[in-house]
């Protein structure tokens, strides 16, 4: 069973980036921002980050760990991992299809 990120509206993409970041292990807000910037090449603002974190937490896709010096780490839940896998597999299939079609055309 997995959740649908589609109902997160404009927070769907930042949420996916956050889930990918947390798939490497628990992290707090600042480290997530830095990580997303490093691997995703896109910057998440602090307001967007916490709006997405609140949504992911409310849906049980991530959970908060005890704070460490005011910084609270978050980690992926089982549901979050399943959801992330489903999302990435969907994107991978989408990417494979697009690439195959592009290779079959004369434009590539």
């Amino acid at each position: 069973m997995s959740a649908d990120l589609g109902d997160l509206g404009r927070f769907a993409e930042p949420s996916l980036l956050i889930l990918v970041s947390l798939s490497a292990g628990p992290n707090h807000g600042y480290a997530i921002m830095e990580d997303v910037e490093a691997f995703g090449g896109s910057r998440i603002g602090p307001g967007t980050l916490y709006a997405a974190l609140a949504r992911l937490e409310a849906r049980g896709l991530i959970e908060a760990l005890p704070p460490e010096d005011r910084r609270r780490p978050y980690r992926l839940t089982g549901l979050g991992a399943t959801t992330l896998r489903a999302q990435l597999e969907g994107l991978a299939g989408f990417a494979r299809t697009g690439l195959r079609r592009l290779e079959g055309s004369r434009l590539a």
């Binding site: 600042y30 603002g45 602090p46 307001g47 967007t48 980050l49 010096d69």
Partner: peptide, 24 residues
């Protein structure tokens, strides 16, 4: 608390302030 800690680590730019306002 954690958002304040984040903003101490990474002072917000004007765009971040707009983003925070939208977040609010």
């Amino acid at each position: 608390d954690e958002l304040l800690a984040l903003l101490e680590d990474r002072p917000p730019s004007p765009l971040d302030l707009i983003d925070l306002t939208r977040g609010a």
